[in-house]
Amino acid sequence: MQLTGTHKFNASATKIWSKLMDTDTLARITPGVSKLEEIGQDQYKAIAEVKMGPVSGSFSGNLNVLDKQEPRSFVLNIKQSSKIGNVAADVKIELQSISEHETDLSFDGKANMSGLLARTGQRVMSGVANTLSKQFFKALEEELASQEG
C-alpha cells in the first residue's frame, strides 16, 4: 500500500522538526498512539489503538527514526503487530521550507500488511491510512498553533 501526502504548515521547518522529534508531542499527535516509549537512540516502543469503522485493534511494536537529515528529512520505520494483522512501513518524511513561516511536509512510503488485515481489509486499510494521515496533520497543526498562542 502506497502512502503519500503533502500538507502545508504555517511554521518553520526547524520548529516542525523539533516537534516531530519530541517523544511526548509525537505520542500526543499520532492518531491512535496511546503510548510511546523511548527504548534507545531514535528507537521507540509504541502501543496504538486503531478503531475505525469495522476495524478495531490493539497494535504494539517498534518505531524507529532512521536516516536523519536535520531539519530536512528522516525515515520512519514502523513495525506494528496485532491479532488482526500486522503492518510494516517505511515512510520518508521531508520538510521543505517555503518561507520562514511556511513549510511543506510531505511523506512518501509504503506499508505492507499481513494476516487478516491484508486478506480482508484492503479497501478499508487505504482509507484508514488516508484518515490517519489527515488526523495527524490536523493534530500537528493544532500543536503548532497552540504553542503560538
Partner: peptide
C-alpha cells in the same frame, strides 16, 4: 449486517 461480519472475523471485538 456491517457489525456482525466484522465481529465474526474479529476485526472488531466490542
Amino acid at each position: 449486517h456491517s457489525l456482525l461480519p466484522a465481529m465474526k472475523l474479529r476485526l472488531n471485538q466490542p
